[in-house]
């Protein structure tokens, strides 16, 4: 039945975080024409949205964030096969320039009062990558910074291939026994891997801002550790649960409701 097939299409696309029509043809064992008919109906109904053009078009759950490229870059055991310059900020200067570009979000439904907060949150998390990993990068230096506006929300993904929070903080507080405890300490305590330098309040700032509205959320993964904050933190946590727990770096996903 049409409904069953369409439910199966949605299930496949949800599990795979996107799919091309040809992949659906193979998985479902039906004709390409039938797949396209179902996809057209699901797009009209607002259940799916196409991204890309021509043969590269992939279909996604409408409103869902798509951070598979970030996931592959972050999760790669060896040097990543792809390091797209459009997302990688190899130095702080590049990160600063990309922060300035966030001003364009004001025209995409971000409230005027929220823009300064979004920029400062991204700045704190992004600069943390450099503060704690300078000279400690596994391979690709710098951080991944990607923004998406979809489903009435702004999604921001910041990731690095550094040493990870546990290795950074356990050096200054040996009482931190595991990755989860260390990641929680990073957000909850004024503690820095750069001790004895007086610092360590950046993530507290980020947590406060995320908690400041029910339309915000954040999740952060470093190794096997995963934490989430804010009303929409669960949505971010669900996405980051697909990122490798074997990777040593740190990845943060922020979601911000738009008007």
């Amino acid at each position: 039945m049409k409904t069953d097939t369409r439910l199966r299409i949605i299930k496949i696309i949800s599990e795979e975080c996107g799919a091309k029509p040809i992949e659906l043809v193979r998985r479902l064992g039906i004709s390409a024409q039938a797949v396209h008919r179902h996809l057209k109906a699901l797009v009209s109904a607002g259940s799916l949205e196409p991204r890309g053009r021509g043969p590269l078009t992939r279909y996604f759950i409408a409103g869902a964030v798509e951070i598979d490229r970030a996931r592959q870059w972050y999760s790669s055991i060896g040097k990543p096969a792809e390091s797209p310059s459009e997302f990688i900020c190899e130095t702080r200067d590049v990160l600063s320039a990309r922060l300035a570009r966030l001003s364009s979000l004001a025209g995409m439904g971000l409230k005027e009062d929220d823009l300064p907060l979004v920029i400062s949150v991204v700045g704190e998390v992004g600069n943390n990558s450099f503060d704690h990993n300078l000279g400690q990068w596994r391979d690709d230096p710098g951080c991944w910074l990607e923004t998406q506006v979809t489903g009435g929300r702004l999604w921001i993904c910041i990731a690095d291939r550094g040493q990870g929070v546990f290795r950074s903080l356990s050096r200054v507080d040996p009482a931190l026994q595991d990755e989860q405890t260390a990641l929680l300490a990073a957000f909850e305590r004024t503690l820095s891997g750069r001790a004895p330098e007086q610092r360590g309040n950046g993530l507290k700032f980020v947590k406060n801002i995320i908690a400041g509205s029910e339309k915000r959320g954040l999740a952060c993964r470093s190794g096997a550790a995963l934490v989430a904050y804010g009303q929409l933190g669960g949505a971010c946590q669900k996405e980051l649960s697909r990122f490798s727990s074997q990777s040593c770096g740190t990845v943060t996903l922020i979601v911000w409701g738009l008007e």
Binding site: P116, L117, I119, S120, E124, N127, R199, G202
Partner: peptide, 14 residues
């Protein structure tokens, strides 16, 4: 100022 972060401001004020 459009946006200021605590890391930058902390360095200046301290």
């Amino acid at each position: 100022v459009l946006s200021v972060g605590p890391s930058w401001l902390d360095e200046v004020l301290s």
